[in-house]
Design a protein around this nucleic acid. Structure first.
Length: 269
DNA sequence: CTCGCCACCTGGGGGC
DNA sequence: TGCCCCCAGGTGGCGA
């Protein structure tokens, strides 16, 4: 269930619990994730996790001479548990750090655990990623510039990690509703002013979700591993036929790029 | 380069 | 209860 907000909440939890700790053992019970977990990862014992960073939806456990790169895919979660806790189904990878274990659970196995050496330049999966939506770099001007000439619907474009990272299927719909822009609009036709609005809406939506995620997922990487449903009240996501929270009109569901899109035809033009 | 589509997996829910 | 179909929060890679 990892959207950028959950990845960021996870990152903060990991940074607090793992930074400065030495990896004492690595256990891979199921190496067949999106890509096979490489032998490199099995040789990580002895390294120290110096910091935990995020790039888009990738987590990077910085070990100095390289980073453990983790992606949660669509169904992954990371938890920090007492060492020795018995693994359950779909608990594929453990990083033991003394008295605690970082455990990846991923039923659908769309996630990834890879080793990115510091030498040899940026990892191929990170090399072509777009702008971070919460950074200053994403503003109206940038969004305007990077959409010029594109005929694809704006929803597809803000979900394209080569242009903007971190905006998933839920928050693409949510941000477009906040910006009052029709998700089907060809990206290149958005005015500068509407790009300003959309850039602002993306930031507000993600920041609000991080706060809400921080509330509902406080123990996401804690010892009990309890995490609930999103407590954010979606404006349009998964609300087909229900009233738009702004105008009361019916929310509509369409399909774009084989993904569900939800929007209010009255508010979003 | 852009765009549309497919693939990778498993589990849960609804309809019959 | 059982079965079958559909759906799911990601994204790399392919061919046109």
């Amino acid at each position: 269930m990892p959207e950028l907000p959950e990845v960021e909440v996870t990152r903060r939890g990991l940074a607090r619990r793992l930074a400065g700790r030495r990896i004492s053992a690595v256990e891979v019970r199921e190496p067949r994730l999106r890509w096979r977990v490489p032998e490199d990862v099995l040789a990580l014992a002895g390294r120290t996790v110096r910091a935990v960073r995020r790039r888009g939806k990738y987590l990077l456990l910085d070990c100095g001479d390289g980073a453990i790169l983790v992606h949660l895919g669509m169904s992954g979660s990371l938890r920090v548990l007492p060492a020795g806790t018995a693994p359950g189904p779909h608990d594929h990878v453990d990083l033991v750090l003394g008295d605690r274990v970082l455990r990846l659970r991923d039923p659908r196995r769309f996630g990834a655990v890879l080793w990115a050496p510091a030498s040899g330049g940026p990892h191929r999966l990170l090399a072509h990623l777009g702008v971070e939506p919460l950074s200053r770099a994403l503003d109206g001007a940038r969004l305007h510039a990077l959409t010029r000439g594109l005929r694809a619907p704006i929803k597809n474009v803000i979900m394209d990690a080569r242009r903007v990272v971190g905006v998933g299927n839920i928050y693409a719909s949510e941000a477009l509703h906040r910006a009052r822009i029709d998700p089907r609009t060809p990206a290149g036709r958005l005015s500068r002013e509407r790009c300003e609005r959309l850039a602002r809406a993306i930031k507000l939506t993600l920041r609000a979700a991080i706060r809400a995620g921080g509330a509902s997922l406080r123990d996401f990487v804690g010892s009990d591993g309890v995490y609930g449903c999103f407590q954010t009240r979606a404006r349009v996501y998964d609300r087909a036929g229900l009233p738009c929270r702004r105008c009361g009109g019916a929310v509509r569901r369409i399909v774009q790029g084989q993904r569900s899109t939800f929007f209010c035809p009255a508010c979003q033009r």
